Structures are given as structure tokens and as C-alpha cells.
Amino acid sequence: MQNKKIVPVDLDSFPEVDALLQELGLGPFVRETVTSPVGRNNAWAGVTERGDEVFVKRLSGGEKDVASRMRRTLAFESYASAVGLNGVRRPALLGSDTEQRLLVFERIVDARTGAELMVDEEFSREQAREVGRTIGCLHGTPPHDVQALDGAPPPFPPLPYLRGLPMSTYLQASAGELEAWRLIQGDTVLIEALERLGEAERAAPRVPSHCDFRVDQLLIRSGDLYVADWEEFRLADPARDVGAFAGEWIFRSVLDLVTNRGEDVFADVEYTHELILQRGAEKMKRLLPLVREFWLGYIGAREEVDEGLAVRATAFAGWHLLDRLIAGAVSATRLSGIQRAAAGVGRTAVVSPEKFSLTLGFGDVA
């Protein structure tokens, strides 16, 4: 819920926002305080006439998708209240309007996102361990009411797409997206590995999970860590959240292939396989200790971790890079060398997770 100073989405076009704020007793937004955070949903952050700092989100998307995301968000709030989820800080939900697709949260003022800390190289090992402890607390809490939690598997990776895109998706895809899907669909070994991951996930224990876990979902203020955006919350394989955190740092290390963080910039370089391996190893050596700290915090917070978790998490970390490849290709006409490099690293983690898991620092489970 950290925001960037940009022109807010016109509140006059959404009178239901102020109407809900007034219904909650907060008063309408003070217009000159309002900013619009960047994201897939319409959102506003600012001060109400009563003086409350709030963040309002209006879910965007198809009716069925929005209904599911709203239901899961509210299910998380009910679950957290029922079990007393004290080990997981999150922005308080102040109110909602299902019909108008609105959610009102407290705004965590002066917080920095994990993504900002990552880019600024200020994400500490202590913070990484605290993130691991937080996710471990979430995963280690037994479901209060299994029937109330969504048990449907998350939609990604979309296994049917590995063999062929639906016509509707194909017609709407950019040239870059189509190139990314061709890269994946032409790799039989990768497809088989992703299908094995799907099978392993279905056989894995399911726990309460975030399922859309990224560093930009983390809000950090004065040493306090908050986890936001619970729209995909459900019972799921814990390896998804663990792998997502690792995947974020692997992806960052690949992006740093072309930065001068601590060295000269490699400009106009052809990224051969050998160069990618060399520079990738150097970049990972700098960042993967954060994954290790996360893992130590995670296993320290859970009483029991299943035997195959580390390997599945490694494969999901690899999928995270492939997912980033597809997402980044949406507005592209062709894939860049750095996107292909990320896909190559992700492929390695998916295809050979047993070998790659120790490199990530996943160990010492017993």
C-alpha cells in the first residue's frame, strides 16, 4: 500500500468510494491528500475528513474473478480473526462493499515496500529472516475452518497452456508474449518438469498460504513488517510462498547482470550461456544469503516441514522467473537478452530442483 505521487484516479467517477467511507464513519477523502498507488486495481490512498489514513481498493477484472478475489480476501480476514494470527502483521481491513468491489484498509504511513528496499540494496538479512518467520507462522497455523477456505489450486502455471494457448488468449497476446510461450512450449523437458511439479503439488500437504507472495507485498516501517494483498489466500502447497520469495531474489540477480552494482557495466554484450553462468553466479553470491536467512526464519517458525518442501520450493522459484518472463513480455514486441537469461535460470531450477535447492540455501530441515 505504499504509493507513488501520481494523479489519482478521478474520485468523482467513483462516488461509491466516499459513500463507503462515510458509511464506515470515517468521512470522505480530503481530495488534496489523495494519491493513486500503481497496481492492477483502481486504488486511492489519503486522509479522510475524520483524520484517518486509509487505502481504498476497487477490484478490477471480470465479474467471476473479482468475486473470487473478494471472497478470498474476506475469508483471510475471518480466518486471521478466528485463529488470532498474531505472528502475521497486515494492514487492518476497515470495511468492504462486495457489490461495489471495494475494500478499505488502514494505510501504513511512511512504510517502504520490500521492492523498494530490494532495488536500493537496503533489504537486510534480519528483514529477510523476519519475512521467513512471518510466512512460517502463517503456514504453521492450522486451518480454523477448512470448508471456509478456498482449496482450488492457484491458476499458475497454467498447465494446459504448456501444450497450446486458447484461441482467445492467442488473439489478445502481444508479439513478445507469443515469443515467450513458444520458448516454453518448444521445450519438452521443461514442460515435463512443470507437469511433475503440478503432480507433486497435488500430493503435497496444504496449509493457509498467501499464493501471490512478492516483495512488493511487504510493507516495512520502523522495523515492523506487514504483509498486504491477500486476494489469492487459500489452502495450498507451502512451497509456493517459499519459492516465490526465492524467485524474487533470483530474478533480481539476473536483472543485475547488466548493472554496475559493485563493478563495471557490461554494455552491448552478447549474453552467451557461459557469460550468463559466470555473471549470474557472481550476482547470486551477493543476494542468495537473503534467501538463506528467509529459510532459517521459516523453518524456525514451523514445528514440522514436509520432506519434499525444499525441492518443490526450488521448482516454484524457477517458475517464478518464467512467470516474470511472460508478464514482462505483455508490452514487448520481442524478448530481450536479459529476459531470455532469466528464463534460462528459471528453467534450470524447474528441471533440476534437487541440485539447485542447496544453492538457494534450502537445507537443515531436520
Rank of each mutant, 00 (worst) to 15 (best):
G186A: 14
I108G: 00
C137H: 12
R133F: 10
R58D: 00
P353Q: 00
L117C: 10
L178W: 03
E232D: 14
W249V: 13
Y79T: 03
A239N: 07
F316T: 07
V258S: 15
A152D: 07
F251D: 15
R347T: 15
V54N: 01
S78D: 12
G39C: 03
D224S: 11
F245K: 10
L219F: 05
P37N: 01
V119T: 14
I220H: 04
A239Y: 07
I135K: 04
E195A: 06
L219S: 05
G198D: 14
H139C: 00
D65W: 02
D110C: 09
P153Y: 01
L309Q: 07
F105G: 00
F76W: 10
A111W: 06
G262S: 06
A349H: 15
V242T: 12
G262V: 10
E121C: 10
D264V: 07
P208Q: 00
A193I: 00
T348F: 11
G25H: 12
D120M: 13
V305F: 04
A180Q: 15
R125P: 03
L225W: 02
I184Q: 09
E199K: 04
E63P: 00
H210S: 00
L225H: 10
S78L: 08
I250D: 13
E303C: 01
S60G: 08
Y170F: 15
T113S: 05
N86K: 08
R163T: 14
R50N: 11
V189E: 14
F362P: 02
A115N: 09
L321M: 12
D145W: 01
L21S: 02
A267Y: 15
E270H: 12
Y298W: 05
D52N: 14
D268K: 13
L190V: 06
S174M: 14
L26S: 04
D10N: 11
F233Q: 00
G61C: 13
G344I: 06
R279A: 07
H139R: 06
V104C: 11
E130I: 05
G262C: 09
H273T: 13
D65V: 10
T48H: 10
